[in-house]
Amino acid sequence: MEGYWGAGVAQLAPTQVGGPMLLFAVLAAVAVASGVGVVAFNSPVRSALCLIANFLSLALLYFTLGAEMLGIIQVVVYTGAIMVLFLFVLMLLNLAAPGALRESRDLRRLGAGALAASLFVLVVVQAVLPLQEATEPQASDYYGTPMALGRALFTEYVWPFELASVLLLVGIVGSILLAKRRV
């Protein structure tokens, strides 16, 4: 199963249009459309729903890359927990009025557009151009399994991993402190 999808990704040459390519195209289209929806909708709940769709399609993209662990963690953490909290807060604040998030037209829009364009260019230069040289990338047998991920986290990347966990812990403690002070 894993090898099958992995091989499909390896054939991502621009001239071939096979099943995996179509699958990728559909998922990517859903991801992009829902990403646009996040910023285009006026209703906050609709935007949140688009974000959920976006996260789900990203998780499916990870699955097609053979990174099942990453995909499922994406669903558990982002779709299952964080977005539920988002919706909880949105419903609690009840920002249902359609015009609640309408922005005024001003010069900041131009600045935001320029920033977005430069970010896009950066991504293209950094990620897409090197990929054109790639030929048949082959994933190792255990790529994306929980074992491989755990081994990488606790050997090769143990310092970044521990630092990130300490950072998260500081965040939790800080948020509890802030919440306690207000009460």
Partner: peptide, 19 residues
Amino acid sequence: NIGVLYLMAVSSLGAYGII
């Protein structure tokens, strides 16, 4: 390989229908 995690993921999606 992720059998149990899949379970957690899907059961957490169950909240959306209700919300």
